[in-house]
Structures are given as C-alpha cells and as structure tokens.
Design a protein around this nucleic acid. Structure first.
Lengths: 146, 146
DNA sequence: ACGTTGTTTTGAGTGACTCAAAACAACTGG
DNA sequence: CCAGTTGTTTTGAGTCACTCAAAACAACGT
C-alpha cells in the first residue's frame, strides 16, 4: 500500500540521506514500514515478491546502508537474528515474547525520556540506554491458559 | 586465587545444582569468577591454562550447563558474542563501551528494583526488564581526549 | 570395585552474517 | 539526452559463534 501511496516520500528520504534511489532500497523500506521487526530473511522474502531475483546479499547491503543512514533501526534481541524497524529517532524500547519471539514496541518507561539514568555509570560516558522487556505475548498467554 | 581459597564452595554449588563436579566445571566457574564478562573463547583460554587439552566444545557445554543451573549468567550485547558472569540472582544491568567493548556492571536504575515498568506492555505479561547502557569507558574517553 | 548415568571429546554441520571482485545502474555535467 | 563517474547489486567465497551427535570417558551411588 504505502509503496503506492507515498513512493516519493521514501525516495526523498533515501536521497536526503545522500544515497542513490534504487528499486531494492524502496522495496526494503516499504517492506519494513509495513511489518516492523523483520529479520533479513523476512525482508528478503517480502522484497522478492515485488522484485524477484533480488539477492539476499543485496538485502543485507540495503539494510546496512539504510540503518547507517538512520532510515531504519536495527535491534538485536538475545538469541535472535537482527530485526529491523522503521520507527527511528525516538529511542523506544521493545518487548519480546519468550515463547514465540513476537516483538512489540514499548514507549519509554517510568517518567519521560530520557527515562533512564544509571545509578552508577562505572566511569562510562553513557549516551544510550537500551531496554528490552521479556514476557509472554497475549496469544501465548491464551494458548498456555487454554 | 579463589580456586585455592574456596574450592569446596564451588564444588558444593555445582553439586547443589544437581550436577556432577568435574575439573572443567570448577575451572570455568573459577575463570568467570575472577574476570567477569568473558566470552566462550576467553573462558577457554583461561581454562586451558589450568587444564590444558580442554576442548572449546566442553567449555560451551559447561557454560550452558552452569547457566541453566543458575550458577552463571549469560548476557548478549548487540554485535558481541555471548558473555558470562558469575553475579547472578540480582537483575543488575550493564554498560558496554562502544569503542573497546569493555563491559561493566551497573546497579539498578532510577528508584529501586523492580526499577522498570513499561508504560504500555502491549498485552504482554512481562517478567524481566533488561537494560544495556552504551557509552565510552574511562580509558577510551582519555584516549580520545588526549 | 562396579555399573549407571552424566560429561567430555571428536568431528561435522548450521545460521547469520561479512568480505571482495566483477557486472551493472543512478545521478552529474557537458 | 548521452557519456562518465561513482555508488549498487550480484555472485561467490569465507568467517564467526555456535549447535548437534556419536563415541570415549569419568563421577557418584551401592
């Protein structure tokens, strides 16, 4: 949908980042915008629908370039391949289902962002706090209860 | 040192977890106790000093068994191999240096533990909050300033 | 000391990437 | 609007950090 409704938007964002606008890049951006929290394989599968013949390597290249450019954000939950999402800029957090690995966004915790300050930074100059919550998603709760 | 000063302690803890007490397990426990936040390779290197011929695979087995038993804790910072530490039970957090990858422990953030509650859990039943801070360690700050 | 059962070793295999060279396509400038 | 330049994509190989499985071995209970 969004590929049809706002193609120029995406192109402009890519160009604005100093990158050339190419079909794989548009397709990747679109795939991730539609279904956040996808790993490289999943992105590749979705891109291949619109652009058959696209190599997995290209998807890695594109994901890397768009992430470096700040158009995508990469998260790496423990024991998962890297996941990509298009909500960037805010430093929101994530909940991961320990049973089915579903991921959802979570807005900042107690108080307002920057919501986290370590009580003791061990001499580090801290610039980012990354929070991952682990739990059971609604579906898995239901299945386990049933 | 701790291998000399408290060997029975370690043995008792292993036995108490329902595991057999073996030389590789004692050596791994000791290596991690002395120098927390080691990856499997680093543990292997240290174990090999005391117990030459120990296979890397054994180290993986031992780390897995001790982690499952709750005697070690595994952390997996983004873009790092898994690291092991012996401080378990409290849910403390970590700071990772973005330049040299040094890791330090951080006590709980604002307020007291449980210090984190998502403002919106997206329907998940959350049981753990994991926090990773990213920044520059003291040494790297100094080197960059110099 | 013996047997059972859990460990360690040996060796192979996998997933998720990264690296590099060659083929190709976007943008620039003429 | 066509060529050149430069950045992209493809192809293909290689790596890291593990996991899986079978066989050799050692810890603990009796």
């Amino acid at each position: 949908m969004s590929a049809e409704t706002r193609p120029d938007d995406a192109a402009a964002r890519i160009r604005g980042a100093g990158l050339k606008v190419t079909a794989p890049r548009l397709a990747v951006l679109d795939a991730v915008a539609d279904h956040g929290h996808l790993d490289a394989d999943a992105v590749h599968a979705r891109v291949a629908e619109a652009l058959p013949g696209t190599s997995l390597q290209s998807v890695y290249n594109v994901l890397g370039a768009l992430t470096d450019a700040g158009l995508l954000r990469r998260i790496e939950p423990a024991a998962s391949p890297a996941l990509y999402e298009s909500r960037t800029g805010d430093n929101h957090h994530h909940v991961v289902c320990t049973r089915c690995r579903a991921v959802a966004d979570v807005n900042c915790v107690v108080g307002e962002p920057p919501c986290l300050a370590p009580s003791d930074g061990a001499g580090f100059a801290i610039h980012t706090a990354e929070v991952t919550f682990w739990g059971l998603c609604a579906d898995c709760q239901r299945e386990l209860a049933g």
